[in-house]
Design a protein around this nucleic acid. Structure first.
Lengths: 157, 157
DNA sequence: TTTTTAGTTCTCTATTTGCAGAACTAAAAA
DNA sequence: TTTTTAGTTCTGCAAATAGAGAACTAAAAA
């Protein structure tokens, strides 16, 4: 019998939409849809077969996708006493981490740009100055963000 | 005769490194390397053939990559009187835009999450509350960033 | 002990991507 | 007018991606 989760048309559309969003962030289709399913599904903890049948994936696709989401810490699972199945769930908390680590990318980019600057001839003044300005802007953002985070944590008291 | 730009080993390595960085942000290899070349090259304005020969690309790859960078506003070109060639240059200013539009992604994600929340049953309280908290965090960042930008512009006089 | 469960791993295929090379084009130069 | 320049577009291939389906496995249940 079918293990598939019952979903409305609207819920299915939203899963697709989030799936596409995930793909745009470099996630392969199947993992992206599983992530989305684990957000949208009324039941928040789903078994392998529930995931598989709801999304019409093959066992291999399901297995590979779930394992990739587990190793990249995007999902997690729980077990229930006397039940061999794993119940997979979205690590929603990881989204806040994602936002922060997304901000962290600025640092990496600024570092790269400084490397570029160090290898540039001094005589392309205009270009170099624009480059310096952008680096300064990135460093500024980098410096101010921790303060914002703190402000948020405090407002949550 | 060769039009290739002379580059040190170090400069070539940096171009590859930036190229890989670009690929990780969803840019195809050739455009990513052209972007990088136009940052690292001592000459900041390069012709079609200089790009082509420096990066060992085919004409078609060069043409397609350049046009995609032009339409996505990542590069720009100038011309010189009595010279039919176009001289392509990195729109370095666009990097600041990139940083900002990167922040803008939060908004899109928050919107999506609100859509999710609206379709969720009320009884998964813990999940819904975590979701609400993340949305609130994103909205908070969204709200505070413009102030930071203003602060930066002001500090630049 | 055999069977079922909850997956994993292997093989194969369809699709997509990224590029090369060649043919082509429109404007300028000779 | 013919040739050159500065590309563009078309054809085709090679590699990478993504997933189906079947064979396999280890632990638990019967």
């Amino acid at each position: 019998m079918s293990e598939a989760v019952q979903l409305s048309e609207e819920q299915r559309r939203l899963i697709e939409k989030m799936g596409v969003g995930g793909e745009k962030n470099g996630m392969p289709p199947a993992p992206a849809r599983i992530m989305a399913l684990l957000m949208v599904s009324p039941e928040t903890e789903l078994t392998f077969d529930q995931v598989r049948e709801t999304l019409n994936l093959s066992k291999s696709a399901t297995s590979n996708a779930i394992n990739m989401l587990l190793t990249t810490q995007k999902i997690d699972y729980i077990t229930k006493p006397g039940d061999r199945k794993r119940y997979f769930k979205n690590k929603i908390g990881s989204w806040k981490e994602d936002v922060r680590s997304n901000f962290q990318n600025i640092t990496r980019l600024a570092d790269l740009f400084e490397e570029v600057l160090s290898l540039r001839p001094a005589d392309t003044t205009e270009f170099n100055n624009k480059l310096r300005e952008i680096i300064a802007f990135m460093r500024f953002m980098e410096e101010k963000l921790p303060g914002l985070y703190r402000q948020w944590e405090e407002s949550q008291g």
